[in-house]
Design a protein around this nucleic acid. Structure first.
Lengths: 213, 213
DNA sequence: TGTACATCAGTGAACGCGCGTTCACTGATGTAC
DNA sequence: TGTACATCAGTGAACGCGCGTTCACTGATGTAC
């Protein structure tokens, strides 16, 4: 867009940041596979050797992107959950919508996090970031269960895993408009919301959060 | 394994088949991205120009693999469903397990089908194959709903989409042992079965298929 | 049954390309005194 | 305030590599007569 690049001297000043942004753009454009170190350098306006000052290699850049993605994801989920206000039930629905919203508005982050095949074994930092994001969902599940009078209390971990899988499945299959996916009779958000509602009813929860009809 | 390759003459005889098998192995090994036309040729024991006799390019080979995958997937799902015998409820559970079993035992096919980013737009044949596989799930959902006395009948399409998304989510996140994923307190199959049971109960279905306790 | 010929499915050499990576280098920045 | 120097963050040229693709070719196979 800006044909008049702001003048920069010999030193870029913020190359690490620029490289990560370039990586995001490339991932968004061509998928996590079709992104190269060289091209990231090029689109940051820098020689192909420059990135090596900031990242050991391509994988480290990708992992950095995924790491930041998990951070933003966690933040978004935490905000949406808002400590279960005004009621865990409504907050939980909001959490689900935030999940899909993130996958849709930040497809590049989402790809880097879940589809790029970054090895989590070799990267404890990244793994922990993923755990923290999932912990939001799990905490929410616990609060939701605790807040509802149930005959049998289901394990919160199971609830969290089910909702995560459903949200991830919907995001992967129908979430991004770009890829030519199946046409749906409803939005991904509606599909997830309906699914979670049915699921929670199956656990014995009714919609305590909605105004009585 | 066979260090003594069976003698073959100038003509390979079954190169198309061999290339598809090689592609599957490479995908299983390195993911859908890390598979090249040249390497497929090499591992089929043939010059790098030979594949062009059978596939226009790399994408066409990948699409062929995905196409066959969808075919096998459809067959596996159809068998598992078995026309809803002995009861749609039990048959439906079996269908779910078959979904995960396919993703687990044929990860390369599953990758090619859902994760390789093969453009479905440009490939109506492939798209239809995917539709046919999904149709099994949808038909099953219809039969399941029809067979159960419900207060309100949910749309079969919605049920099918929910179960598909849940199964796909579980398969993607926890399905393959190879990638270092999250450790689960239960198997993926158990997780899916539990999720579907809760979901169906939420729709008002009880487990009519199980022997009365 | 044999022969001539068309067709087919491979070969292997060659090409241009972009990538990842290295290297000695140099301009810019910060700091000690 | 000025100067000398160390450190840092970039340059640009070069390399080896594997890939995709093409080309004229050739061995094998099938078929007409």
């Amino acid at each position: 867009m800006s044909w008049k690049t702001p003048p920069r001297g010999y030193h870029h000043g913020n190359l690490k940041e620029a490289l990560m942004r370039a990586a995001l753009d490339l991932i968004a454009e061509k998928g996590p596979g079709g992104f190269t170190f060289a091209e990231a350098a090029r689109s940051a306006g820098v020689s192909p050797a420059a990135p090596y000052r900031h990242f050991r290699d391509r994988d480290e850049l990708l992992a950095s992107v995924a790491l930041r993605g998990f951070g933003q994801f966690e933040t978004a989920l935490t905000q949406a959950w808002d400590n279960g206000r005004p009621h865990p039930f409504t907050a939980f629905e909001r959490l689900g919508r935030a999940y899909l919203a993130f996958a849709r508005t930040e497809p590049a982050y989402y790809s880097a996090m879940f589809e790029a095949g970054v090895p989590l074994d070799a990267n404890p930092e990244l793994r922990e970031a993923g755990e923290r994001a999932f912990a939001v969902l799990r905490t929410a599940a616990e609060a939701l269960i605790a807040s509802t009078p149930l005959k049998a209390r289901p394990p919160a971990l199971m609830l969290a895993l089910h909702v995560w899988a459903l949200a991830h499945g919907i995001a992967s299959l129908f979430g991004r408009g770009d890829a030519a996916r199946r046409a749906l009779p409803m939005t991904a958000e509606e599909l997830l919301e309906a699914g979670v509602l049915v699921y929670l009813r199956g656990l014995g929860m009714e919609n305590f959060g909605s105004p009585p009809s």
